[in-house]
């Protein structure tokens, strides 16, 4: 077990070194922060609303993640396959689940770091007014879980192909489905046509489970949903990687 943790840490460390020794990491963080600011302050009409809240930020976050997380996830395994380093990695004395988990955790940590770097927004609302900081913390927890879920989907689609563009598009489509299944306009439409299906469909949506955290409620059920989404997608990643070699 000890060895497994050491291996996962080593693989994560390597992944992070790769991120930060190429411009990818910096470009991503800058774009992410600019978009966060833009959506919260301009589109979200932060100043006009005259309320000390980050509700707009957390409202737009899933839509930002829809495009930005697959951009991080798409290279996870397709790059390894294209460069041939997958052969190197998987013939080391490590099991493939350690490699999958190590790479996933590194990217997740990176996404969490990018999210934490939006802290000036938190300082701003606290300076301007008296926001509910518990709600903000729970929103951040939701954001991290959401990015983990999308990233795990990205890990799965990147294992499918050595072409990063294909991987990106596939994972955007899957993530879009995960959002839309619980998105108000879609659920309202379903309510009219097939009311009996609505609970089932929306229970698959990240939005249903993210909603509570956006409102300041961290529900164990919602946390479990995101964790099972991650576990399931990573498990699929493992199956896909194994099937490539068989």
């Amino acid at each position: 077990m000890n060895e497994a943790i050491r291996h996962i840490r080593t693989i994560s460390k390597r992944e992070l070194i790769s991120y930060f020794s190429s411009p990818v990491a910096y470009v991503f963080i800058v774009i992410f922060l600019i978009l966060c600011g833009f959506f919260t302050l301009n589109i979200g009409r932060f100043f006009e609303s005259n309320q000390a809240t980050l509700a707009a930020f957390f409202f737009y976050l899933p839509w930002l993640y829809l495009f930005l997380v697959p951009a991080i996830g798409m290279r996870l395994w397709s790059e390894e396959r294209r460069m041939g380093t997958m052969e190197l990695l998987l013939t080391m004395p490590v099991t493939s689940w350690r490699a999958i988990l190590g790479k996933f955790l590194a990217s997740w940590l990176f996404l969490a770091l990018a999210l934490v770097l939006t802290f000036p927004l938190v300082i701003t609302v606290n300076y301007l007014g008296d926001p509910d900081n518990g709600m903000i913390v729970s929103g951040y927890v939701g954001g991290i879980l959401l990015s983990g879920g999308f990233l795990a989907v990205g890990s799965m689609t990147s294992a499918l192909t050595r072409n990063q563009v294909v991987s990106f598009i596939l994972s955007v489509i899957i993530c879009l489905f995960l959002i839309l299944a619980g998105f108000a306009p879609v659920t309202e439409m379903l309510e009219d046509k097939v009311p009996w299906l609505i609970d089932l469909v929306s229970s698959f949506s990240v939005m249903t489970h993210y909603y509570g955290m956006q409102r300041g409620v961290i529900n164990l059920r919602d946390v479990i949903f995101f964790l099972s989404l991650i576990v399931f997608a990573l498990f699929c990643t493992g199956v896909i990687i194994r099937s490539h070699r068989a």
């Binding site: 080593t10 790769s18 020794s21 190429s22 460069m83 041939g84 380093t85 013939t91 004395p93 490590v94």
Partner: peptide, 29 residues
């Protein structure tokens, strides 16, 4: 696998790392 070393065809490497970081990674694994 612990007993063996393997040089795959074309010598694949993590291109964005330095030689030292790469060898450090291999040694840790």
């Amino acid at each position: 696998r612990r007993l063996m070393g393997y040089l795959p065809e074309n010598g694949p490497l993590y291109a964005d790392m330095t030689v030292y970081n790469f060898l450090d990674f291999a040694a840790e694994l």
